[in-house]
Design a protein around this nucleic acid. Structure first.
Lengths: 130, 130
DNA sequence: TTTCATACACACATTTGGGTATGTATAGCA
DNA sequence: TGCTATACATACCCAAATGTGTGTATGAAA
């Protein structure tokens, strides 16, 4: 067969047609970020509650993720001056606008993830892992 | 103010109410994965086209991401036996089911990302970076 | 015969992610 | 006089993620 190059029209970046998409990916295309937002989408939570409900997140990652989300205006942090300390986290109105995205992701997981497992098994049968 | 602990009912993991959500996050809550899926959601693309349209992805990451997506059954890889090589990538029917999620993310970015920038500036004004 | 094009693989270096361990402050309880 | 509970901060360290640079195969065009 002969080499037939394809004309390189339309080689401008699709991602840049939506100028904020790239930055949005940097923002929320992250495992811990989605997990935290998802839990908070149900109700206000304290730090320890978040940690328990996410289950396998370390303090460090939880703290960092919460700080980032606060900085980006997606969650609010409310500190009560008590001893021992008490801090409550909740979604801001801006954070609430992400619920659509979270829900569609969640729905997809229940509807389609099993097919992913099937595909994996098949792939590994053909391309056996080393 | 006195310390008033909150009763710890309902401390079972919310994330585990949707048993596949956690694994779905491991799968698609990733910058490069979303970028590749997004570009492929428009049409079949060759390797080089993907690289150009994503813009700042290295070969290594593009190749790895494509392999992962293929293994998970989300994209198809079609090799043409020509010289120099030609490979086409496209979404599988399963991959197509992610379009809802991709679209909601994309919509969110255009509708709300500017508020994120505002929140950041404000946060940095109050908590000046070191 | 030299260069180019394409889609990688692979080795190496570096950056980042993320775990663990420890510190802080203080009221209340034993 | 400790010890506990809470929500972190901070520092240290290892492992994983990712970038960079180079190599490969082979026909065609210059």
């Amino acid at each position: 067969m002969k080499y037939m190059p394809k004309p390189k029209i339309n080689s401008r970046s699709l991602l840049d047609e939506h100028p904020y998409l790239r930055q949005t990916l940097d923002l929320i295309a992250d495992k811990w970020v989605v997990a935290v937002l998802y839990v908070l989408s149900h109700s206000t939570k304290r730090y320890g509650e978040l940690q328990r409900e996410i289950g396998n997140i370390s303090q460090r990652m939880l703290t960092r993720t919460l700080r980032d989300l606060e900085r980006n205006g997606l969650i609010e942090r409310k500190v009560y001056p008590v001893v021992p300390p008490m801090v409550e986290y909740s979604l801001t109105p801006l954070g609430l606008t992400l619920n659509r995205v979270l829900k569609s992701m969640c729905d997809w997981s229940t509807e389609n993830f099993q097919q992913v497992e099937i595909a994996r098994d098949e792939y590994d049968k053909v391309n056996p892992p080393i």
